[in-house]
């Protein structure tokens, strides 16, 4: 009798190998995701250290965001993440999107910066997406602006969105704003007569302790919209050069199924169809352009966040909401046991 395998033997061997590979593949994917998550945490740590170096130079943490398109923390810390050349080529009298603000300057290549992928601002678990808006690059890292909402009111007496005012606003069940490590340029004064105020937070003001206050977390890079030029059809999450895009608040849990309220964005396309994947929904901003962006990620079951002392932790979606909100404040006096 000649030596050989029967068909059944062969099939059994193939079936066993198939089962083994099926068992192995999720493990490989999990290992890849674990590596990407660690990479993300290391990026956060580096940026938080850049905040500390910025603090050494300027005696305060950077501004969270200037007015509208006029820059965010992501610009100010460039010299501290070895991107000094980019920083010095940037003209602070114009917006990142090259809009002429100061009449003495003509339009140039100001927005070159916004096309670049800056790896340290990126979470590798997320993709590599550009915005529908002018193909600007989307990133992931966002600073914490408290536990309620930020807003950009209309200019008094008009329906034109103000390029001047933005600040915090109490929203929902948050009854008192107890500070945050990052502030945005905001309106000071009455509705009819006001100026822009800035606040840079220094370490001594963080009385809750730097290890009890969130500096950074992450968001998802917004999807591209099929109708680029149709108003309100953008997903601008991850456009961190833009005032609203560079921040998040802890009003809602991480990775909530509640839609983020973001300017220029909407849940449905004008032509019909729902935007974005159901895990990270988005809709328009509320009255007075109230923006509420939650911490979001494609990691499984939570988000990474860097605390003010430079430590990075993984916060689960199931975190106690009081703890999560307390972690955002700088002088709430709450002790965090996280």
């Amino acid at each position: 009798m000649p030596f050989g395998f029967t068909l059944v033997e062969l099939l059994v061997v193939i079936a066993i190998i198939g089962v083994l590979i099926a068992l192995l593949l999720p493990a490989v994917q999990a290992a890849r995701e674990a590596a990407a998550r660690m990479n993300c945490q290391s990026n956060m740590k580096n940026v938080t250290l850049a905040f500390h170096n910025y603090h050494d130079t300027h005696q305060a943490f950077p501004l969270g965001g200037d007015r509208d398109t006029m820059g965010t923390w992501a610009l100010y810390v460039l010299p501290f993440i070895e991107q000094g050349a980019l920083y010095s080529s940037y003209n602070f009298r114009r917006g990142y999107n090259n809009n002429t603000v100061d009449s003495g300057f003509s339009k140039g290549n100001q927005d070159l910066l916004a096309y670049l992928r800056i790896p340290v601002y990126t979470c590798p678990t997320d993709g590599d997406r550009k915005s529908t808006y002018s193909n600007y690059m989307h990133h992931n890292l966002v600073v914490c602006m408290g536990n309620a909402a930020v807003y950009q009111p209309n200019d008094p007496g008009t329906s034109t969105t103000s390029t001047q005012g933005r600040g915090w606003v109490i929203y929902g069940d948050v009854t008192e704003i107890l500070g945050a490590m990052f502030w945005s340029g905001c309106r000071i004064g009455s509705d009819t007569s006001w100026s822009v105020g800035y606040k840079w937070v220094s370490m001594t003001e963080v009385t809750d302790g730097l290890s009890n206050t969130i500096a950074l977390s992450e968001t998802v890079q917004g999807d591209r919209s099929p109708s680029a030029h149709s108003a309100g059809s953008l997903d601008l999450r991850g456009l961190i050069w833009w005032g609203e895009g560079g921040q998040f608040t802890t009003y809602r849990s991480p990775n909530t199924l509640t839609a983020d309220n973001v300017q220029f964005s909407n849940a449905t396309y004008p032509g019909g169809g729902t935007m974005h994947n159901p895990r990270h929904p988005i809709t328009a901003s509320l009255a007075n352009n109230i923006t509420i962006m939650s911490a979001r990620s494609f990691h499984s079951g939570g988000v990474n966040a860097a605390l003010g002392d430079g430590s990075v932790r993984f916060f689960p979606d199931t975190i106690n909401i009081d703890t999560w909100r307390a972690l955002a404040t700088t002088y709430g006096g709450e002790a965090s046991n996280q």
Binding site: T69, N97, T132, Y133, S134, S159, T161, A228, H229, S230, A231, G232, S233, L234, F264, N266, A284, S285, L286, A287
Partner: peptide, 18 residues
């Protein structure tokens, strides 16, 4: 009546209300 579509999406405007 709040919708203005412009080739520059940031100049496009649409207001939403709650």
């Amino acid at each position: 009546g709040s919708r203005v579509d412009n080739p520059d999406p940031m100049l496009s405007k649409v207001e939403y209300r709650d």
